[in-house]
Write a protein that binds this DNA or RNA. Structure first.
Lengths: 233, 233
DNA sequence: AATTTGTATTTTGAATTCAAATATGCAACG
DNA sequence: CGTTGCATATTTGAATTCAAAATACAAATT
């Protein structure tokens, strides 16, 4: 009887951080907005302490800026912030693809292929939200196949900075088709264990997404609280 | 008269975080050690609130783990943690070198060259701590020349995870000579605006450092609180 | 002797309070 | 009308308190 069954414990500050992150992605806390402690405590029915602690977590993640004696504000990304972020993300995801091509197991590859088919089904049905769900799972699987948890974590955190913007992008049919094509190339590169090709297609994939986000920032009200369809790659 | 002269303000939790980070690097808080709030508050003569907030910052930076109802412990890196971290660092610093080669200005290059000569002088005098000081400044300058602040920040944060270990590595003369050689190659690549060469030499540089750190972990008491000479690349 | 149970003490998480800093509103003045 | 000064209200940062959870230790039981 040596089996240990852990009871999951979650501190309140952690729960609060999760909530606030969601609210940032959904736009319920707008970029540039002041995080008023009294209001947020009233909204979430908690005392200030776990809220402040949650805010510190998010400050370290780059999601909010702490202004001494003025509290915290939600980060508002400039165009150059976005360019910088995608540049780093391209590097990280390229690295991820490269390592995945070297380290992927047959069963991991099969899982990605199956997810790819499921995503293809959504594409065929023009089911964008289903497509995005499988798309996200494929990217997680590729990151996982790279077998570097720190790389995955780093990618996730930097991605979180731009997630609200990515969340707002739509796909028109030609762009969508191109994204599908790139996904196919990813799969081929992984299958062939061709790390150079995997890196290349993943970098291109991220940079294309950067361009979509930048376009949205230039033409649309990208910082508005009205969310479009969920978006990813 | 539109110039704004800010008066620097620093919150106590931020100061505390700085102190704790130092204590981690110096080994005054050992890897795996429990961060006892009462003791640390007594040591730093502060109340628990800013200490807890500082700990949350550091948890998000990956320097400590938060254990619900058990407080925080300083991260103790396994060998695979170190391998993963250096793998990511190599990717980031390679990216940094690549971008720096593309974006560096003549005056930035001249500054790096001057720092290189100063570092060479320390090498000639066998002044290891002086060498490390200039070494660090060169790396900061290369990161800066890449002109992606997020990349620099990401590198800095991941480097902070392994800084305590790097701090403990010594240089024997042949290794030191090899490091100098690599630095010269970095300078040449940057001068030639050869981004592939810059990436290559910086990646090698980081991976060599990884090997030194791993060797120290395998043979020495890398987690002891007795610090050797300050070490970097 | 080893294990379990009960109790006291310590530590942690969160709520509350206190004090300083900031923001806002309004009247007086040039 | 714009600026300045002052009072008041609000917010933030930090200290203190409260309550729950964890740990330590002694006594009881097997």
């Amino acid at each position: 009887m040596a089996e240990v069954i852990q009871i999951p414990r979650r501190t309140l500050h952690d729960e609060v951080a999760l909530r606030l992150r969601e609210m940032l992605v959904e736009g319920r806390i707008a970029p540039g907005a002041k995080l008023n402690e009294r209001e947020l405590c009233a909204l979430l029915c908690i005392s200030r302490t776990p809220l402040r602690e949650a805010i510190k977590l998010m400050a370290a993640e780059g999601l909010v800026d702490l202004l001494p004696n003025r509290g915290a504000v939600a980060v508002r990304l400039s165009e150059s912030d976005v360019v910088h972020a995608f540049e780093v993300l391209a590097g990280l995801e390229g690295m991820s693809g490269e390592l995945a091509a070297q380290r992927i197991t047959d069963s991991e590859l099969a899982e990605i292929r199956a997810l790819h088919y499921e995503m293809l089904a959504c594409f065929t049905r023009s089911d964008l939200s289903g497509y995005y769900r499988f798309n996200a799972r494929i990217h997680v699987a590729i990151n996982s196949a790279a077998k570097n948890p720190l790389l995955s974590k780093t990618y996730r955190e930097i991605n979180a900075r731009v997630q609200s913007l990515r969340f707002r992008t739509n796909q028109n049919k030609p762009m969508w088709k191109l994204a599908m094509k790139q996904h196919e190339q990813m799969l081929e590169a992984l299958d062939a264990r061709d790390s150079v090709a995997a890196r290349t297609v993943l970098v291109e994939h991220v940079l294309r997404k950067r361009d979509v986000v930048l376009e949205l920032m230039r033409t649309g009200d990208a910082h508005s609280s009205v969310a479009a369809e969920p978006g990813a790659t």
